[in-house]
Design a protein around this nucleic acid. Sequence first.
DNA 1: CGCCGAGTTGAACTGAATCAAGAAACGTGG
DNA 2: CCACGTTTCTTGATTCAGTTCAACTCGGCG
Lengths: 196, 196
Amino acid sequence: MYELILAHIARHVTLDKQEQDAFCAALQHRKLRRRQYLLQEGDICRHDHFVIKGGLRQYEVDADGRENVMQFGFEDWWISDWYSMLTNTPTVYNIEALEDTEVLQIERIKLEQLFITMPKLERYMRIIMLNAFVALQRRVLFMQKPSAERYAEFLRRYAHVEQRVAQQHVASYLGITRETLSRLRSQMIKQRGEKL
Amino acid sequence: MYELILAHIARHVTLDKQEQDAFCAALQHRKLRRRQYLLQEGDICRHDHFVIKGGLRQYEVDADGRENVMQFGFEDWWISDWYSMLTNTPTVYNIEALEDTEVLQIERIKLEQLFITMPKLERYMRIIMLNAFVALQRRVLFMQKPSAERYAEFLRRYAHVEQRVAQQHVASYLGITRETLSRLRSQMIKQRGEKL
DNA sequence: CGCCGAGTTGAACTGAATCAAGAAACGTGG
DNA sequence: CCACGTTTCTTGATTCAGTTCAACTCGGCG
């Protein structure tokens, strides 16, 4: 059960056996069925979640009732609302399972305790944050570009994700309507046909 | 010279005198005149920079020659290209001084050495990253909304910045043209007039 | 077998970009 | 300290990408 997460950590820092055990002891295993929620708007987020199986989407519902997808979370990704966790305030996000999903979750408090005794774990989390930040920066830059380019970039970067989520969720992630995404797709298919 | 940065650190972690000195010893002071560059496209970014005076803008020039502002950096902000720093690859960003500016910079290598001997510093950086990430998430959500709301949010959050940077840079940060921003502003002024 | 959500397609509409002049502000040198 | 040139901002007319609204298709699941 812990192979995935330990392997992920090992990619960034080296924990000895004892440290690995201490870390794993703090984890809780949690299963969700398709359409179940890991977190709902109004909850205070107290855990960080690492996906070991399945997939989730994190989205916000805005004043007009539109769903805006903040991010997806599939195997090997951390997903959570760090803002809510940091400030102990109710989250604006919903995190919903897109498939039957399993996560390992760790309480914020426990994680912070582990940071004190295990600086390497804090290093790991710093690096995770850094990577997440850099990925978001790229996304911000792409948000400035026309939707066709945004979709192309999404395919380049997350081809595997695209296979597994509904198109409307991809559209929402990209900040366009499902109609526009549908049209982009049919144009791309047509172009491919012409080139062959 | 070090008051600002030490105060900033103290807001998140507590360093003893010795640690403070060790950290400050690794810092370099650097002055820039208005329009000078802290970093230019193609450079490999080797430092993290903390602004103690003045202001900067970090922007990318895209294929069509458009400038997209990634972020501003004023007093009390870290600014750098962490992606370039992380991967040792040439940066796509330019960081230009908007005013006469002073930064304290630290080499990536030195910072990493300090992390080993001073875990609290690594904690500080983790928290900085976390805050930066959360702020970017909010920005991504706002990018989905119409430009008037984006501008209003910008004013709410960065009123002091708005005073100090050219409107075209604000427009670029928001992902709109200067013409559109100009029209938004004149509309807002008109509305204020009506309400008084 | 029929229903329902997901995706597609078309037509009309709209917010913002583009193109094109002007006006204002800025700073640099005489 | 003023004059000139350059950049920045404003305003208007036009165009266009993407949304909205609406109707229809398809595939799966009860």
